[in-house]
Simulated scan of single mutants.
Amino acid sequence: MTTPCSTTTAPARTTAPARFLLLGDSHAGCVGGAARAADLPFAGGPVGSGRDFLGPFFDADATGLTFRGAETERLHREFLDSLGARALGELAVPLVCTFGLSAHTVATRQNWDIHRDRHGAVPDAFLSGRLFADLVRATVRGALAFYDLTAALGLRVLAPLPPQRVPGMSDPRVFFAAQDVLSGELAARGVEIVDLRARVTDGTGLQRPAFCQADDTIHGNLAFGRLIVSELLDRGL
Protein backbone atom coordinates (compact mmCIF):
# COMPACT_ATOMS: atom_id res chain seq x y z
CA MET A 1 0.00 0.00 0.00
CA THR A 2 1.26 3.46 -0.80
CA THR A 3 1.12 6.37 1.59
CA PRO A 4 0.90 10.11 0.94
CA CYS A 5 4.68 10.17 1.22
CA SER A 6 5.33 7.29 -1.14
CA THR A 7 3.13 8.02 -4.14
CA THR A 8 4.99 8.78 -7.34
CA THR A 9 3.98 12.17 -8.65
CA ALA A 10 4.10 13.89 -12.02
CA PRO A 11 6.14 17.05 -12.46
CA ALA A 12 4.66 20.11 -10.83
CA ARG A 13 3.12 22.15 -13.67
CA THR A 14 3.07 25.85 -12.85
CA THR A 15 3.57 29.05 -14.80
CA ALA A 16 6.71 29.91 -12.80
CA PRO A 17 10.03 28.22 -13.60
CA ALA A 18 10.82 25.11 -11.54
CA ARG A 19 13.19 25.79 -8.66
CA PHE A 20 14.60 22.26 -8.41
CA LEU A 21 14.37 18.69 -9.66
CA LEU A 22 13.29 16.15 -7.05
CA LEU A 23 14.37 12.53 -7.49
CA GLY A 24 14.25 9.84 -4.86
CA ASP A 25 12.55 6.99 -3.12
CA SER A 26 9.34 7.25 -1.10
CA HIS A 27 10.98 9.67 1.36
CA ALA A 28 10.93 12.27 -1.42
CA GLY A 29 7.13 12.25 -1.38
CA CYS A 30 6.82 14.48 1.68
CA VAL A 31 9.18 17.01 0.12
CA GLY A 32 7.12 17.15 -3.05
CA GLY A 33 3.87 17.35 -1.09
CA ALA A 34 5.15 20.23 1.01
CA ALA A 35 6.47 22.08 -2.05
CA ARG A 36 3.10 21.73 -3.82
CA ALA A 37 1.26 22.92 -0.70
CA ALA A 38 3.49 26.01 -0.65
CA ASP A 39 3.03 26.62 -4.41
CA LEU A 40 6.77 26.20 -4.86
CA PRO A 41 7.39 25.16 -8.48
CA PHE A 42 9.52 22.06 -9.00
CA ALA A 43 9.74 18.99 -11.19
CA GLY A 44 9.97 15.38 -10.12
CA GLY A 45 8.99 13.14 -7.25
CA PRO A 46 9.60 9.60 -6.01
CA VAL A 47 10.68 7.22 -8.77
CA GLY A 48 10.97 3.95 -6.85
CA SER A 49 11.47 2.33 -3.47
CA GLY A 50 14.57 2.71 -1.31
CA ARG A 51 15.86 -0.75 -2.19
CA ASP A 52 15.82 0.13 -5.90
CA PHE A 53 18.66 2.63 -5.45
CA LEU A 54 21.20 0.73 -3.36
CA GLY A 55 22.78 -1.67 -5.86
CA PRO A 56 23.58 -0.69 -9.48
CA PHE A 57 20.50 0.94 -11.00
CA PHE A 58 21.65 3.04 -13.97
CA ASP A 59 24.00 3.20 -16.95
CA ALA A 60 26.00 6.38 -17.41
CA ASP A 61 26.91 8.19 -20.61
CA ALA A 62 28.72 11.43 -21.44
CA THR A 63 25.82 13.73 -20.53
CA GLY A 64 23.76 11.81 -18.00
CA LEU A 65 22.30 8.40 -17.39
CA THR A 66 19.66 5.85 -18.25
CA PHE A 67 17.84 4.17 -15.38
CA ARG A 68 17.63 0.41 -15.76
CA GLY A 69 14.06 0.29 -14.46
CA ALA A 70 11.67 1.10 -17.33
CA GLU A 71 9.17 3.08 -15.24
CA THR A 72 11.91 4.99 -13.43
CA GLU A 73 13.50 5.90 -16.75
CA ARG A 74 10.13 7.01 -18.15
CA LEU A 75 9.60 9.35 -15.19
CA HIS A 76 13.18 10.61 -15.39
CA ARG A 77 12.73 11.60 -19.03
CA GLU A 78 9.33 13.14 -18.35
CA PHE A 79 10.79 15.27 -15.55
CA LEU A 80 13.74 16.39 -17.68
CA ASP A 81 11.42 17.27 -20.56
CA SER A 82 9.40 19.51 -18.25
CA LEU A 83 12.64 21.35 -17.44
CA GLY A 84 13.77 21.66 -21.06
CA ALA A 85 16.76 19.37 -20.49
CA ARG A 86 17.73 16.51 -22.78
CA ALA A 87 19.92 14.83 -20.15
CA LEU A 88 20.74 15.13 -16.47
CA GLY A 89 23.98 16.90 -17.32
CA GLU A 90 21.95 19.77 -18.85
CA LEU A 91 20.06 20.38 -15.62
CA ALA A 92 20.01 24.12 -14.86
CA VAL A 93 18.44 23.87 -11.39
CA PRO A 94 19.61 22.07 -8.24
CA LEU A 95 18.84 18.39 -7.75
CA VAL A 96 17.21 17.33 -4.48
CA CYS A 97 17.73 13.60 -4.06
CA THR A 98 17.20 10.84 -1.47
CA PHE A 99 18.89 7.94 -3.29
CA GLY A 100 20.94 5.71 -0.98
CA LEU A 101 19.74 7.26 2.27
CA SER A 102 17.26 4.52 3.14
CA ALA A 103 19.24 3.65 6.27
CA HIS A 104 16.52 1.41 7.73
CA THR A 105 17.00 -0.95 4.77
CA VAL A 106 20.77 -1.08 5.26
CA ALA A 107 20.14 -1.77 8.96
CA THR A 108 17.93 -4.85 8.39
CA ARG A 109 18.63 -6.96 11.48
CA GLN A 110 19.34 -10.30 9.82
CA ASN A 111 22.08 -8.76 7.68
CA TRP A 112 24.15 -8.08 10.80
CA ASP A 113 23.50 -11.22 12.87
CA ILE A 114 26.94 -12.64 12.12
CA HIS A 115 28.55 -9.61 13.77
CA ARG A 116 26.60 -9.72 17.07
CA ASP A 117 28.30 -10.44 20.38
CA ARG A 118 27.11 -13.01 22.93
CA HIS A 119 24.64 -10.47 24.29
CA GLY A 120 22.98 -10.08 20.88
CA ALA A 121 24.32 -6.58 20.20
CA VAL A 122 26.47 -5.34 17.33
CA PRO A 123 29.59 -4.04 19.18
CA ASP A 124 30.50 -0.36 19.17
CA ALA A 125 34.02 -1.21 18.02
CA PHE A 126 32.61 -2.92 14.93
CA LEU A 127 30.17 -0.10 14.14
CA SER A 128 32.98 2.46 14.24
CA GLY A 129 35.44 0.29 12.34
CA ARG A 130 36.63 0.06 8.75
CA LEU A 131 34.90 -3.23 7.99
CA PHE A 132 31.48 -1.85 8.88
CA ALA A 133 32.04 1.23 6.71
CA ASP A 134 33.21 -0.98 3.84
CA LEU A 135 30.10 -3.15 4.14
CA VAL A 136 27.81 -0.12 4.12
CA ARG A 137 29.59 1.32 1.09
CA ALA A 138 29.26 -2.01 -0.72
CA THR A 139 25.55 -2.17 0.10
CA VAL A 140 24.88 1.29 -1.37
CA ARG A 141 27.44 1.14 -4.19
CA GLY A 142 24.82 2.02 -6.80
CA ALA A 143 23.81 5.21 -5.02
CA LEU A 144 27.44 6.21 -4.48
CA ALA A 145 28.09 5.72 -8.20
CA PHE A 146 25.12 8.01 -8.89
CA TYR A 147 26.61 10.78 -6.73
CA ASP A 148 30.00 10.24 -8.37
CA LEU A 149 28.24 10.95 -11.66
CA THR A 150 26.42 14.06 -10.44
CA ALA A 151 29.74 15.40 -9.15
CA ALA A 152 31.39 14.72 -12.51
CA LEU A 153 28.50 16.53 -14.25
CA GLY A 154 28.96 19.54 -11.98
CA LEU A 155 25.43 19.46 -10.56
CA ARG A 156 24.41 21.04 -7.30
CA VAL A 157 22.88 18.23 -5.24
CA LEU A 158 21.10 18.45 -1.88
CA ALA A 159 20.20 15.30 0.04
CA PRO A 160 17.74 15.40 2.96
CA LEU A 161 18.47 12.84 5.65
CA PRO A 162 15.55 10.43 6.05
CA PRO A 163 13.09 10.47 8.93
CA GLN A 164 14.78 9.10 12.03
CA ARG A 165 12.44 6.14 12.23
CA VAL A 166 13.62 2.57 12.78
CA PRO A 167 11.03 -0.16 12.05
CA GLY A 168 11.10 -3.46 13.89
CA MET A 169 12.92 -5.19 11.04
CA SER A 170 15.93 -2.89 11.55
CA ASP A 171 18.61 -2.51 14.23
CA PRO A 172 18.60 1.05 15.64
CA ARG A 173 22.33 1.13 16.43
CA VAL A 174 23.18 -0.06 12.92
CA PHE A 175 20.73 2.49 11.49
CA PHE A 176 22.45 5.44 13.15
CA ALA A 177 25.97 4.19 12.41
CA ALA A 178 25.14 3.43 8.77
CA GLN A 179 23.54 6.84 8.36
CA ASP A 180 26.76 8.49 9.55
CA VAL A 181 28.74 6.52 6.97
CA LEU A 182 26.25 7.34 4.21
CA SER A 183 26.11 11.06 4.93
CA GLY A 184 29.91 11.21 5.10
CA GLU A 185 30.24 9.48 1.74
CA LEU A 186 27.77 11.86 0.10
CA ALA A 187 29.41 14.94 1.63
CA ALA A 188 32.76 13.75 0.29
CA ARG A 189 31.19 13.82 -3.18
CA GLY A 190 30.08 17.42 -2.80
CA VAL A 191 26.48 16.68 -1.83
CA GLU A 192 24.89 19.17 0.58
CA ILE A 193 23.35 17.20 3.44
CA VAL A 194 20.05 18.60 4.74
CA ASP A 195 20.17 17.47 8.37
CA LEU A 196 17.12 18.32 10.48
CA ARG A 197 17.79 15.86 13.30
CA ALA A 198 18.23 18.55 15.95
CA ARG A 199 14.76 19.89 15.11
CA VAL A 200 12.72 16.71 14.72
CA THR A 201 14.09 14.11 17.16
CA ASP A 202 13.69 13.40 20.87
CA GLY A 203 16.31 12.43 23.44
CA THR A 204 16.63 8.94 21.96
CA GLY A 205 17.51 10.30 18.52
CA LEU A 206 14.24 9.07 17.03
CA GLN A 207 11.70 11.15 15.13
CA ARG A 208 9.09 12.88 17.28
CA PRO A 209 5.46 11.85 16.55
CA ALA A 210 4.64 15.36 15.30
CA PHE A 211 6.88 14.69 12.29
CA CYS A 212 5.88 11.05 11.63
CA GLN A 213 3.41 9.70 9.10
CA ALA A 214 0.76 8.18 11.33
CA ASP A 215 -0.11 5.07 9.30
CA ASP A 216 3.33 3.52 8.84
CA THR A 217 6.64 2.99 10.61
CA ILE A 218 9.06 4.60 8.14
CA HIS A 219 7.94 7.89 6.57
CA GLY A 220 7.88 11.47 7.73
CA ASN A 221 4.70 13.51 7.40
CA LEU A 222 3.86 16.78 5.69
CA ALA A 223 5.16 18.78 8.67
CA PHE A 224 8.53 17.10 8.19
CA GLY A 225 8.39 17.88 4.48
CA ARG A 226 7.67 21.52 5.25
CA LEU A 227 10.81 21.75 7.37
CA ILE A 228 12.87 20.29 4.53
CA VAL A 229 11.36 22.72 2.02
CA SER A 230 12.03 25.63 4.39
CA GLU A 231 15.66 24.55 4.65
CA LEU A 232 15.93 24.27 0.87
CA LEU A 233 14.61 27.81 0.53
CA ASP A 234 17.09 29.02 3.13
CA ARG A 235 19.82 27.53 0.93
CA GLY A 236 18.70 29.55 -2.04
CA LEU A 237 16.49 27.16 -3.99
Rank of each mutant, 00 (worst) to 15 (best):
A70F: 07
E90T: 04
A60M: 12
R19N: 12
A138C: 13
T15H: 15
F58M: 10
S128R: 12
P46H: 05
L22A: 00
V31L: 06
D61S: 13
D113G: 04
P123M: 04
R116D: 07
D52L: 07
A37N: 15
E73D: 14
F53S: 04
F20E: 00
R116L: 13
T15N: 10
D25S: 05
G142R: 09
R86D: 15
A85D: 07
P56Q: 06
N111S: 09
T98Q: 13
A125L: 08
A85E: 10
R116V: 10
G120T: 04
V106Q: 07
F42Q: 09
L127E: 09
G64F: 14
T9V: 13
A85K: 05
I114A: 15
D113F: 14
D39A: 13
S6F: 02
D59G: 12
S128L: 07
W112S: 13
G50K: 04
G142P: 04
G55I: 00
G50Q: 00
G24H: 06
R118M: 14
L144R: 03
T66M: 13
A107P: 08
E78M: 13
L135W: 00
G89H: 10
D134T: 11
L65V: 15
A35D: 01
V31P: 02
A133D: 01
R137I: 03
L88F: 15
S102K: 13
P4N: 11
G100C: 04
G89K: 15
T15Y: 06
T63V: 12
D61K: 12
T105N: 12
S82W: 01
T98H: 13
T9F: 11
L127W: 12
P94I: 07
A18K: 04
R13D: 03
G100W: 03
P17F: 11
T66I: 15
F126Y: 13
Y147V: 02
G50I: 04
G48D: 01
H119Q: 15
E71C: 00
G120R: 13
P4L: 10
V96L: 02
S49W: 15
L95M: 05
V96F: 06
L21C: 06
E78H: 06
P41I: 12
A143L: 01
D81Y: 11
A43M: 08
A18S: 06
A10S: 08
